[in-house]
């Protein structure tokens, strides 16, 4: 019900922005072509804003498109997307005055893979999946099954610290009532931390052996905004552009170092990976690492200097001889 109202308000605001010439584009979500799926809607057309939707499946981090579009953009942003936008502003990739942020307080996004795992059916075989407060109701073969939201939301949503956008022009709803579950959100990482060092390396060797170098993790990541990525450099050639686990792993380690302090734990890289490599067990670790070391959280303050261009004389150096 609430989504319906938010949706109506969004359509009104988006239409007004386009009509008044305040933006050239609107970026939001519309119904996708597969069951439950949503898809980005990027439009200049004021009539197509009626296709904009808000529901528990609006998963993409739309800030990804900001560096590509020329002109002023009205953009639908959940908590994490919002921080990615701020981070892009910090990095001078986007001007604050060029974006009109339509903030959506986010109750957490439903991970259909988790639903599939719980009910033992693929998503196209489910009749319905709806959110009801702290529960998610799944209808299969006419039968309703209830699950606590914490069992079916994306891991990164469970760890989300700021589900309600902090930097916005219009906030489409009151603040979010997301129930976080920090432990569940770090489960993958904790399992890894419990392993001996060599075993962790073996784990990643195995995982990265199936990487096909589609670069979806990089393409979908708003923090990976380089026009030319180190991977494609040929003089010197840092890593081979062929999908071998060694080079795949180096690619991902360096990518994580590059997005340190920019990654907002939006979870998009892991979701995009077609071969299910648990990429978030890397990105979330880096996210927590920079928080521990430098008390830095990405995209919290548009005036703040980006993490790696900045330093404090008091930065930890206990590891230096």
């Amino acid at each position: 019900m609430k989504d319906r109202e938010t949706e109506q308000r969004l359509r009104r605001e988006a239409k007004a922005l386009l009509e008044q010439g305040k933006v050239d584009y609107i970026i939001g979500f519309e119904t996708g072509s597969l069951k439950f799926t949503t898809t980005p809607l990027i439009t200049k057309d004021k009539d197509s804003v009626d296709r904009l939707i808000i529901n528990p499946f609006i998963v993409n981090n739309l800030s990804e498109y900001l560096t590509e579009l020329k002109g002023r953009v009205g953009i639908v942003a959940k908590g994490c997307d919002n921080r990615s936008i701020v981070s892009l502003i910090q990095d001078n990739q986007v001007k604050r005055e060029d974006v009109v942020i339509l903030g959506v307080p986010c109750p957490g996004i439903i991970d259909l893979s988790k639903v599939e795992g719980l009910v033992g059916k693929d998503r196209d075989e489910l009749d319905d999946v709806t959110r009801d407060g702290d529960k998610v109701v799944v209808t299969v073969d006419g039968e309703k099954k209830e699950f606590p939201a914490s069992e079916v939301l994306f891991d990164n949503c469970l760890g989300c610290e700021f589900p309600t956008p902090q930097e916005y022009n219009i906030l489409l709803d009151e603040s979010s009532s997301l129930v976080a579950d920090k432990t569940a959100s770090r489960k993958g990482i904790e399992t890894l931390e419990g392993m001996p060092q060599e075993q962790r390396w073996d784990f990643w060797e195995k995982e990265f052996s199936r990487c096909i170098r589609c670069y979806a993790c990089r393409s979908i990541c708003p923090a990976c905004f380089c026009e030319r990525c180190f991977v494609e450099e040929s003089e010197p050639q840092w890593i081979a552009p062929v999908p071998r686990w060694q080079d795949n792993l180096i690619f991902q380690v360096i990518r994580n170092i590059h997005v340190a302090g920019r990654c907002t734990d939006c979870g998009e890289c892991e979701r995009a990976c077609p071969v299910n490599i648990p990429l978030r067990s890397l990105t979330k670790e880096m996210y927590d690492l920079v928080d521990d070391l430098y008390h830095f959280k990405a995209g919290m303050d548009k005036e703040a200097a980006p993490l790696m261009t900045h330093y404090e004389t008091t930065d930890p150096e206990d590891f230096i001889k």
């Binding site: 060092q197 962790r200 792993l249 994580n256 590891f319």
Partner: peptide, 8 residues
């Protein structure tokens, strides 16, 4: 620190 986590 990151590489240590990865297994180096």
């Amino acid at each position: 620190k990151f590489l240590e986590y990865v297994g180096v």
